[in-house]
Amino acid sequence: MRSGVLRRVLRIRSAQIALVILLGIAVLVVFGSSIAPQDPLHQDVARLLQGPSGAHWLGTDYLGRDVLSRLVAGSRLSVLTAVEAVAAALVVGALPGLASVFFGRWFDFIANRLTDAIMTLPTLVFAIAFTAVLGNRMTPVMLAVGFLISPYFFRVTRAAALQYAQEPYVDAARLFGVSRVRVVGTHVVGKVLPTVLVTAATALAGALLTVSSLTFLGIGVVPPAPTWGGVLSSDLNFLSQLPWAPLAPAALIMLTAGSLNILADALRDTIGTSGPPVVRAGAITDQEVDRVDEHPAA
């Protein structure tokens, strides 16, 4: 990976803020249940649907549970499941994307037709159908989601890898007798990685919303385990009593997804400008004398 990319990303103000927010979320994910001020499962029937107070900063839900604690404790399940989905998509999408550059026409053809087919499936509906078959557990559902978003990874990785695999230095390496796997490993992967990271950050934001949607619908999570989407849905049910209640979980989901998107944008912009530096003014630019003519469809 280009060493300067991260440094340059960190120079962008919006990316700095996004990164701080994501670091905060990461802390919640790692230490979630231990730093929650109260037991997220503790029900207090005496205090149902209360507004914010000294004891309950974000109030309580319909079972008298502390909302803040539920959100903090729910971070892990919400975020990790989203990460699971993206990791699955990376394996199912990005790896074949890389491979299709070097495994010849047939592999490429089949992989492309398969992704076309997968892309026609509606994510949410398919995930719901999945729970009907595999039972209401989170991991298989998220693997299913990962599978469904894998075409994006496939496309992006394939396009980037194809571009870099045509570079003359890849030919040069092949002419040294370097094996295909090594050529891809040394000359292609590092250059494709930033692009894949951008996709992953965007996809993570998307997956987070999907997880929230699913848990909001009560899919994939067995109560009373707390999740962001779960909190949101329970709050929505009592909208008439506590109209402002969904704000906190919704804000948390939006903040995380938004930060990921901002970071992805910053990363993409940085990669876009990190090509080989322009030779100093007045330089004779290199000529491409007959490459274009002789390799029109290379």
Binding site: E167, D171, A172, P276, E288
Partner: peptide
């Protein structure tokens, strides 16, 4: 051994 046209592109920038 082949020395490619345009060394800027035939040498891996990384």
């Amino acid at each position: 051994q082949y020395v490619f046209q345009d060394p800027l592109r035939s040498l891996d920038p990384d």
